[in-house]
């Protein structure tokens, strides 16, 4: 229960940050990328603030043995640059550029109640589900005992035995 309440509180901080920063607003996100038009550099300050706080905070926390509610830190360990990483990221960018929503911006936008956010997030979840199915069937075809899924997120969970 404490675990769940803690995650809820941390989610509230994340959602507040997304809301105040302007990441929740597709028009502002698209203007950040529109160097040739109505450029709004605000999001550079969002990324800057987030990166500085995270880099400093991680440096202190990762020196400790374990997080409060778990036995270990679930950190992706892969360092190779492969095709799914680059092609997936490129495709994600095309969608971000079309809609102005990234996952972290779109999910809090649900709380503002706009239908565009609900439509986008619904389709995004379908996209995740289809991609998961596709990579599962590919893995099944590979038919080796050691299933290796090309997602560090997923791998971290497998490593953690979840």
């Amino acid at each position: 229960m404490t675990r769940v309440l803690s995650a809820l509180a941390i989610g509230l901080i994340f959602g507040s940050g997304i809301s105040l920063s302007g990441m929740v607003n597709p028009a502002k996100v698209l203007n950040f990328f529109d160097f040739a038009g109505t450029w709004d550099p605000s999001l550079a300050f969002v990324m800057g603030g987030a990166l500085i706080v995270t880099a400093i905070g991680y440096a202190f926390i990762l020196k400790r043995g374990a997080p409060v509610f778990d036995r270990l830190f679930h950190l992706p360990t892969r360092r190779d640059i492969d095709t799914p990483l680059v092609a997936g990221s490129a495709a994600f960018g095309i969608g971000w550029g079309i809609a102005g929503f990234c996952p972290g911006g779109a999910v809090p936008a649900l709380g503002l109640g706009h239908t565009q956010a609900w439509l986008f997030v619904g389709c995004m979840i379908v996209g995740i589900a289809l991609a998961r199915l596709a990579s599962r069937s590919r893995t099944a075809r590979a038919a080796t005992g050691a299933a290796k899924i090309s997602s560090s997120v997923h791998t971290a969970n497998v490593v953690a035995g979840r």
């Binding site: 994340f14 990441m23 992706p76 799914p84 990483l85 680059v86 092609a87 997936g88 990221s89 490129a90 495709a91 994600f92 960018g93 095309i94 969608g95 971000w96 079309i98 809609a99 929503f101 990234c102 996952p103 972290g104 911006g105 779109a106 439509l119 986008f120 997030v121 619904g122 389709c123 995004m124 979840i125 379908v126 996209g127 995740i128 589900a129 289809l130 991609a131 998961r132 990579s135 090309s150 997602s151 560090s152 997120v153």
Partner: peptide, 18 residues
């Protein structure tokens, strides 16, 4: 269309902006 490729792209790319 954007939602579908953001979801699938971020899944295969192992992550998004956050």
């Amino acid at each position: 269309f954007g939602g579908l490729i953001v979801g699938a792209g971020a899944y295969f790319g192992s992550g998004c902006t956050s």
